[in-house]
């Protein structure tokens, strides 16, 4: 009696397993076969459409581009790179001021970095995230990234004016183009 019961329940289980475990695979493969044949016979020369829309048209900033271009204190991105070694991923940003202006009153600060993984690296006043006093007209900063991640956007602010009350601040959102990623041979 018990034996019979377990026998019939095994039979039912096998039935379900065969339907799910063999039926779905057979279905998937038949669909693939059908689609392959379909494409070969009926769509031999697909129109070259839609291929141009593969890249979003918002052009990002890259090396050689100018920040704050509409200001009198425009700065040039002269280095933009991710240096990779086995131990760490490092983001390198170098800026040069374009015109000689009253440099002693200029401060540029990277407020935050948006990464590919949507993580945000926030700035913090006491660390290297701040470009101060573009006196030799050049500044350079490095950030350790989470391993494997790449910045896609920067938020940069420019402060002008020595006294706190007269500070004049502009912020710019800087979407980045594909940053060169190179092996760090240090």
């Amino acid at each position: 009696m018990n034996e019979e019961q377990s026998n019939s329940s095994t039979k039912r289980l096998v039935k379900i397993l065969v339907i799910v475990g063999i039926g779905i695979p057979v279905l998937v493969e038949l669909m693939t076969l059908f689609n392959l044949i379909n494409v070969q016979i009926f769509e031999d020369e697909e129109d070259v459409n839609g291929q141009d829309s593969n890249v979003a048209d918002v052009r990002g900033f890259g090396e050689g581009d100018t920040l704050f271009a509409d200001q009198e204190t425009a700065v040039l991105i002269d280095q933009l790179r991710v240096k990779v070694s086995t131990q760490e991923w490092r983001f390198v940003l170098g800026l040069t001021s374009v015109d000689s202006i009253s440099q002693d009153k200029l401060q540029i600060q990277v407020d935050s970095l948006i990464l590919q993984s949507d993580k945000v690296l926030m700035s913090n006043d006491s660390n290297i995230w701040k470009f101060q006093q573009l006196v030799p007209a050049q500044a350079y900063g490095e950030w350790i990234l989470p391993n494997g991640d790449i910045p896609t956007k920067l938020f940069i602010s420019m402060y002008q004016g020595a006294a706190a009350d007269s500070t004049y601040q502009i912020s710019q959102e800087v979407p980045l183009e594909k940053i060169p990623v190179r092996y760090n041979q240090e």
Binding site: T10, L13, V14, L17, V18, V20, G21, I22, I24, P25, V28, E29, T32
Partner: peptide
């Protein structure tokens, strides 16, 4: 034994999906 029986069916299903 029931779990042991489910196992190869599950493998076959999973592998078909992944490999396809």
């Amino acid at each position: 034994k029931t779990l042991a029986l489910i196992q190869p069916y599950a493998w076959f299903l999973g592998m078909t999906l992944m490999s396809n």
